[in-house]
């Protein structure tokens, strides 16, 4: 046993010291997948203007990003959810804008507009057939996202009036794309996706007499606010990077609607 230990120590001391991660000139970003494409595109441009820096961007979900930021494992967390103290205390947020949450319905349901209360009852599972709201006689299939999803949290707060009120019979899909596909393929399905996007095979639902219009994005009431969070002692490079992303003018290309003056930090 002593020899094994000695050999182990010898191998360990012979290996080069493992560098601390992230390396000093790298910036690691983790969190919500809803703004992954925007942050990756922005990171590429920022790196061009800052030679020698490497930005590493990965998903994993809002909560995972915040927890890793709180532990000091990443420099920046992307999150649709406001941070709780037990995840990451005292962090500073840089909102990227508003990301519309759109409700989508399978074409065969025969419904393209509902009231806000009706939408809430559908998502809670209280309305079980589209015929009850003027559609085809077809069961309602609610397609949701897991508890970790920022979009689900926003829907629960803005439509359902609180956490934990989502239909227990909902199908769960892990991404916006999976929700879209499931809604498009499943007769009677309804779901929600973040960001304006091509919505083939589904009907975009008007809610309470309002439908999302990119020319008047602020008229649509359902939004998530994806935000970049950093620790208070973040380096100047990290702060420069998040400020750059929070101010880029081409955010609309990625579905992000700039916040009205006064809401942006």
């Amino acid at each position: 046993m002593g020899k094994v230990l000695a050999l182990w120590i010898a191998i360990g001391s012979a290996l080069p010291a493992v560098p601390r991660w992230p390396a000093p000139r790298s910036i690691s970003v983790m969190g919500a997948s809803s703004v992954l494409a925007y942050v990756k595109a922005g990171a590429r441009l920022w790196q061009r203007a800052h030679p020698g820096y490497q930005v590493v961007v990965s998903g994993g979900g809002s909560v995972a990003g915040l927890i890793e930021l709180g532990r000091g494992h990443v420099n920046v967390a992307m999150s649709d959810i406001a941070p709780r103290a037990e995840w990451a205390a005292g962090v500073v947020g840089f909102p990227l804008g508003k990301l519309p949450i759109l409700f989508v319905v399978n074409r065969r349901a025969g419904v393209d507009a509902v009231g806000a209360n009706v939408l809430a009852d559908i998502l809670r599972g209280r309305i079980g057939n589209w015929a009850q709201v003027g559609g085809q006689a077809m069961p309602v299939v609610v397609v949701g996202r897991p508890l970790a999803s920022g979009a689900r949290l926003a829907v629960e707060r803005q439509v359902l009036g609180g956490r934990g009120s989502f239909s227990r019979f909902a199908l769960m899909q892990l991404s916006n794309g999976a929700v879209l596909r499931t809604v498009a393929d499943t007769p009677g399905a309804i779901g929600f996706v973040e960001g304006e996007r091509q919505l083939p095979g589904v009907v975009q639902l008007a809610v309470g007499g309002r439908s999302f219009d990119r020319r008047e994005p602020n008229a649509w009431p359902y939004y998530a606010i994806p935000t970049l969070y950093v620790n208070p002692g973040a380096s100047p490079a990290v702060l420069d990077f998040v400020r750059y992303l929070a101010r880029r003018p081409d955010r609309a290309r990625y579905g992000l609607v700039p916040l009205p003056r006064g809401q942006a930090s």
């Binding site: 979900g61 909560v63 995972a64 897991p146 508890l147 970790a148 769960m172």
Partner: peptide
Amino acid sequence: ILTDLAVFPPGT
């Protein structure tokens, strides 16, 4: 485990 791992921090 896959679905809910991201939402519960260690200790909860």
